[in-house]
Structures are given as C-alpha cells and as structure tokens.
C-alpha cells in the first residue's frame, strides 16, 4: 500500500514525460490529498484503477518491441449487477438523481 501511495504522488507529467521533468510541488501534494480523502463514492474507483495502470505499464514500457494495440484490454471486469457499483455511476446517466 505504501508503494501505491508514493507512486500516486508523482505527477502524471513525470509519469508520461520522464523523471527529469521537475514539476511544482503543488501538483504532487494535490494528488496526495486526493488519495487520502476517501469519503465520496467517486473515490471508490481510485485504488484499483491506479494499480491497474501500474500493472499494465511496467512490462509494456520496457519492451521496445511491444505489440501495437490501441485497445486497452482490462485484466478483470467487475460484476456490474452489484448494487454498490450500480449506484456509483448512477449519476453519470440522465436517469440519475440530480436533485442533490
């Protein structure tokens, strides 16, 4: 878990363009705040998704002969019939509850 947290605090710019790029610290700390606040339902997605990126990127980025896929194949799918998951994206639909 500690590794995930430290990983997440490095900014996305660094992740994409390499470590030599120095970013203002504000970005990094912002990311940190994000990971610590875990109140809302949106946060539900954070840990797993972050981990997925790591798993997928490590083998692919070292390999100069990596296959050329634009499709992003998810390693695992969640069971979308479960109530929690359904509620977590309910408001992304026009049928969601917009009163709150």
């Amino acid at each position: 878990l500690a590794r995930t947290l430290s990983r997440r605090s490095t900014s996305l710019m660094q992740l994409v363009y390499g470590q030599f790029l120095t970013k203002p610290d504000s970005m990094a700390s912002e990311e940190n705040d994000d990971s610590e606040a875990s109140g809302s339902e949106e946060e539900f997605f954070v840990p797993k998704g972050q981990k997925k990126v790591q798993q997928n990127e490590l083998p692919a980025f070292d390999d100069i002969d990596a296959e050329d896929y634009s499709k992003f194949l998810k390693s695992e799918l969640r069971d979308w019939s479960s109530e929690d998951l359904v509620n977590s994206i309910r408001d992304r639909f026009v049928t969601g509850n917009w009163s709150k």
Binding site: L12, M13, V16, D33, K52, N56, E57
Partner: peptide, 27 residues
C-alpha cells in the same frame, strides 16, 4: 485514466512534433 497506449502516444508526439501536453489530474 490514461492508458499505456495514450501515454506512448504523448511521448511520440513530443518526439516528432515537439509538443508537450499539460496534464492535470482532476481529483
């Protein structure tokens, strides 16, 4: 979330077109 392919694309764009994107996560 950025995909590995998307990240590679950003790097290629930097190499060929010399353009860097400003990437801001929205928490």
């Amino acid at each position: 979330q950025l995909t590995p392919y998307g990240i590679e694309t950003l790097r290629n764009i930097r190499d060929f077109l010399d353009i860097k994107f400003v990437i801001k996560p929205d928490p």
